[in-house]
Design a protein around this nucleic acid. Sequence first.
RNA 1: GCCCCCAUCGUCCAGCGGCCUAGGACGCCGGCCUUUCAAGCCGGUAACACGGGUUCGAAUCCCGUUGGGGGCGCCA
Length: 482
Amino acid sequence: MTVRVRIAPSPTGYFHVGVGRTALYNWLYARRHGGVFIVRSDDTDAERSTQGYQDDILEHLRWLGLDWDEGVEVGGPHEPYRQSLRLGRYHEVADAFLAAGQAYPCFCTPGELDERRKAAMAEGRPPGYDGRCRQIPPAGAAARREAGEAASVRFAVPRPGATDFTDAVRGEMHIGHDHVDDFVILRSDGSPTYQLASSVDDVDFGITHVIRGEDLLSSTPKHILITGAMGGDPITYAHLSLLMGPDGRKLSKRHGDTALRAYRERGIIPEAMVNYLALLGWSPGEDETVVPLGDMIERFDLGDVSRNPAVFDPAKLEWMNGVYLRALEADDFVARALPLVEADVGRALDDDELGRLAFVAPLVQERAKLLTEIAPQVRFLFVDEVSYDEAAWDKVMGAEGVDGVLAAAIDALSAVPEWDTASIETALRGMLEARELSARKGLQPLRVAISGSSISPPLFESMEALGRTRTLARLAGCAARL
RNA sequence: GCCCCCAUCGUCCAGCGGCCUAGGACGCCGGCCUUUCAAGCCGGUAACACGGGUUCGAAUCCCGUUGGGGGCGCCA
């Protein structure tokens, strides 16, 4: 049987890193088994769903490289893949349940329910629905509905009873129906709840494995009950532990960023994000940390998924990003940096500038952890006037004898026959020797002078990239500014 | 309150009865390298929550305690 898995995000917020991880595990499982990965939009919450969030989700799924075989925007044999377009189908299923006595109308109002829930809590009873309307004879219920009385539809959970299933990551599960209330499948306004819509879709779309967050573990009996009532094939469930913030609480906005978009904007590249997310709860078995995507696909197994909650650690993510950044081909690195550099400079670079960027790029590549660190380090190459970092200026330019160093550097560099790194180095080292200065003391003012910062790519190469005229002008301008 | 899940270094993971004086990675600390910042290299720090069993032998199996997480919605 072909493996069919899905990710079904609800477009009620930006694409969350936790959803990203769940999507990744589903995708890996599908690719590992030659299965089908489906993207469905669980947009039954009309109030909170927006097109903007929907776009953000698909954009980031693509950004991560998680291509889907069926679903939203790409289509497939089970179109449409948006729940808001399948409302009729949910009613069909609910009506069938009603007719078969597997569901019943409930006339309790949200207010009453709320009151009873609070009372039950206060008395220490389970706060779930008490099943009151299940006693109403079908004929009477039908009459009341025809008379126009508002009613939701609840699933009649078999009592006594229990649901048993084997979770692919957690093992044998047994949940007594005492702890599963008669849940609503259709709201009184006729809209389907998540429980109904999601389960119906899983059956209709032929989903074989549901890999999702642990927060849905407790409601799995409901989904199994619906699947069974529909006569659908049993589905294998796999519940992933949740992602935590640094304080051990569920990862939320309080801990910083939960939106994948934020990490992307910070300069994380998708390869690193995928690798980091993959290892946040899954282990290839060996003591490996950097695992190429191909290996992941080959080795991914639900049995190797960790059951413990995992703390999302941005520091490790950034370290890993550095690893991937350094592993990039030189031109690939430039290609990824270019948009950020151009945005930083505020215009497109011309051919000459592109050449200069390509020249220094490998030097910044070996020291960058984030894509966003690049532009500030190469900016000095593309602006007419550098803005000096105040702290760097004060610290370096305030030192004794800086004016002499600048003058000597200008002299030495003016005399350089060929403007290349080696000649520049020779000239400057000669200057250092003549003035009996350490490289640390004698070069740092030059760095600040040409780059505006005490942090820059290596000096000699930077000067070559800048060009003789600009370098000299910047040194002179700096001397005048002292 | 009730139900479910989980429990190895600060963090992520390895370990699935003897190979464990518990391994790797991030972080942190120290050193080397060095024209800045990084990167790199070397070294160090640091954990089997607790208590009972089972067994010749438990990080590994069972029970309990404690702790953490999730759920108990006409949200998804």
